[in-house]
Design a protein around this nucleic acid. Structure first.
Lengths: 243, 243
DNA sequence: CAAACGCCCTGATCGAAATCAATCCGTCCC
DNA sequence: GGGACGGATTGATTTCGATCAGGGCGTTTG
């Protein structure tokens, strides 16, 4: 098993105490694997559990009345999934495995216990949730106020930045297990138009592509065009003392 | 002063203990007023405080490289402002007073103390933040995947639903202190097009307008067209016991 | 009081992205 | 091997919303 993925992630930001580590390990006592394409949580269902991603890619999405789909966010190793369960009995979003995945399920009571016993972890979880909210807001601005090309660029920049801190970006070279339709649903575009934009980025020497493999060539220019801001760092000076 | 606005809001969801009430009151010891139009927090500045809204409307927005603005969210009485300070030293967004406002400032340490002493309040604040994230995701889907008309409808539905629980919507009649440009910046449209969409909604008998005054006539149809889901209710069954 | 300004409204034109329609290509499966 | 299928690609056309331009109206301001 090799220790909690969430602990690994939080360990980037603070030095965890032994008892915090134990508490986090408990969130990931169990794990469960799903095949690529599986729906892990279904919109409007009442899930009983949340998950921490141990391995693989997922995304959360909604399907609107008109039949079109919007992908909200992609989730990677160490990300928490299904947190809306903390606020709503029925899931507002569908979570789908993009690749084969391994997830660690945990219940609300587990999290409540952890929060009661470990104020600093509570605060960290809150900070992570706030950071995710900010990241969604960035996406909102990108979709609401930028061109198709900038939207695609922005998505690539975000994915690359997030994979990098996980050690999954090798100098800008990443695995991108998404169809152009997925990218369209994440950026509010059609697959056809995503195709044209990506060819444009290739033509202009900003990225290279090869099947599922993508390489960011000129990250500076790509991020600048997209007004992309890296949100992977986290402020931790204010946290209460460890327990 | 008349008690904490946040307590008032949380009181909708749980029965607060005396000591929780005291802790919440402490977050709102001070208050400060700002004139309509004032920038309360500036993008890229390093604010020292967060705020709870006591009175008035605000919005948070970003300005992109191309000069255009995206409004992320409107804030009303009882809402918390500036939470990104928990995750980032520099504000990712600008917060502007839409009307004259009264705000209660509080520092991170205050919140950290509160979270350490009151696990249930921690959990509630987390739940509220999650709910806000979901609400942003709804907006994202609206902007990414629906027509101009549906986007405007959706914004009206959301504002109406949120004002209603504050007792500020009188059977669908609300004060809307926004210019059509503001509405455009919130929905990813131009003011010109917002104008046409709103006239369309009036023409079709879905809303009525009169200066700053707006009345939702047929909420069912308006929300249905917009694929709007009300997120004002909050799940609280899982919370740890009060302190 | 006149001027300036902010905001609302409307018409004409433009353009970016959607839609429609095919073709191509690799892979899975019988 | 040969369909069948999912996904990428490309071209032609359409459309929704942006842009441009101007007018009206109420309110602040000098």
């Amino acid at each position: 098993m090799g220790g909690s993925c969430l602990a690994e992630r939080l360990g980037h930001y603070v030095r965890l105490s032994a008892s915090e580590r134990v508490a986090l390990d408990r969130l990931e006592e169990h794990d469960r694997s799903y095949r690529r394409g599986t729906i892990v949580i279904s919109e409007n269902d009442a899930p009983r559990e949340m998950f921490i991603v141990r391995q693989g890619w997922l995304h959360s999405s909604v399907v609107l009345g008109n039949g079109s789909r919007q992908i909200m966010r992609f989730q990677f190793r160490g990300d928490m999934i299904g947190l809306p369960l903390l606020a709503f009995p029925d899931s507002p979003e569908t979570v789908t495995a993009v690749t084969d995945v391994t997830l660690c399920p945990f219940g609300r009571e587990r999290l409540a216990q952890l929060m009661a016993a470990h104020p600093r972890l509570s605060a960290l979880v809150l900070a992570l949730t706030v950071a995710e909210r900010v990241s969604l807001a960035d996406r909102l601005a990108s979709i609401g106020r930028t061109s198709a090309r900038a939207r695609v660029s922005s998505l690539i920049c975000e994915i690359n930045a997030r994979l990098r801190i996980l050690g999954l970006s090798d100098g800008g070279a990443i695995q991108l297990p998404l169809t152009q339709e997925d990218i369209g649903d994440a950026t509010g575009l059609t697959a056809v138009h995503v195709n044209r934009m990506m060819r444009g980025l290739v033509e202009d020497g900003l990225i290279e592509r090869n099947g599922n493999h993508l390489r960011v060539i000129d990250e500076g220019r790509l991020c600048a065009e997209a007004s992309f801001v890296d949100r992977t760092a986290l402020e931790t000076g204010w946290l209460p003392p460890a327990q």
